[in-house]
Simulated assay, not measured.
Amino acid sequence: MTANGLAIIAGKEFSDHLRSRRFHLLFGILIVIAAVGMITGAVQYSKDLADYNSLQVIAQDDPTLAGTLAGLNPSILSAYSQMGGLMAIIGVVLGIAMGFDLVTREKESKSLKSLLAYPVFRDEVINGKALGGVGAIALAMGVVLVVSLAVMTLFGIVPDLDELVRILVFGVASFLLVFTFFALALLMSTVSKDSGNALLYSLIVMIVLTSFIPIFAYSPVYSAVFGDPPDPPGRSTYSYLQGSSAYMVTSVAVGYTSGDPIDPEELKEYERALREYMAQKQTITDIVTLISPTGNYQAILGAVSQPAGDNAPGYGDLLGALAYNVIALLAMPAAFFGLAWARFMREDIR
Rank of each mutant, 00 (worst) to 15 (best):
S46G: 11
Q44D: 10
Q56C: 05
V57P: 09
Y45L: 01
T40A: 09
A59H: 08
I31G: 10
I31H: 00
T64S: 14
I58N: 09
T64V: 12
I29T: 02
T64C: 00
P63T: 08
S46V: 02
K47W: 04
I39F: 07
V43W: 00
Q60W: 12
A35G: 09
I29H: 02
Q56I: 13
L55V: 05
V32I: 13
L49C: 02
A50V: 04
G28W: 02
D51F: 12
T64D: 15
G37N: 01
D51A: 15
A59K: 05
A50M: 04
I39C: 13
A34T: 12
D61N: 14
M38I: 07
I33W: 01
I39P: 13
V43Y: 00
G37I: 00
V32E: 08
A50S: 13
T64H: 09
I58L: 06
N53C: 02
P63C: 10
Y45M: 03
S46M: 07
L30G: 10
V36C: 08
A50T: 09
A35N: 04
V36I: 14
F27L: 07
G41R: 03
D51H: 15
L55M: 13
I58M: 06
T40S: 10
A34C: 14
I58F: 14
D51V: 11
A59R: 04
I33E: 06
G37E: 02
Q60Y: 14
Q44V: 09
V32F: 07
D61E: 13
Y52C: 05
G37P: 09
G41W: 03
I31P: 10
G28A: 08
G37L: 00
A34G: 14
A34R: 03
V43C: 04
A59Y: 11
A35T: 12
Q44C: 01
V43I: 11
N53H: 13
G37A: 01
Y52D: 06
V32A: 11
Y45Q: 02
I33G: 02
N53M: 05
K47T: 11
I58S: 09
A42W: 00
A42D: 05
A50R: 07
A42M: 01
A42Y: 01
A59T: 05
N53I: 01
D51E: 15
L55N: 09
Y52I: 03
Q44Y: 06
A34F: 06
D48Q: 14
S46P: 03
K47M: 09
A59C: 05
I39L: 11
L30F: 09
D61K: 11
G37F: 01
A50I: 00
V32Q: 05
Y52S: 05
Y52N: 01
A34I: 08
Q60H: 12
F27P: 03
V43A: 05
V57D: 15
S54Y: 05
D62V: 04
I31W: 00
Q60L: 08
D48M: 11
V57W: 10
G41E: 02
A42R: 01
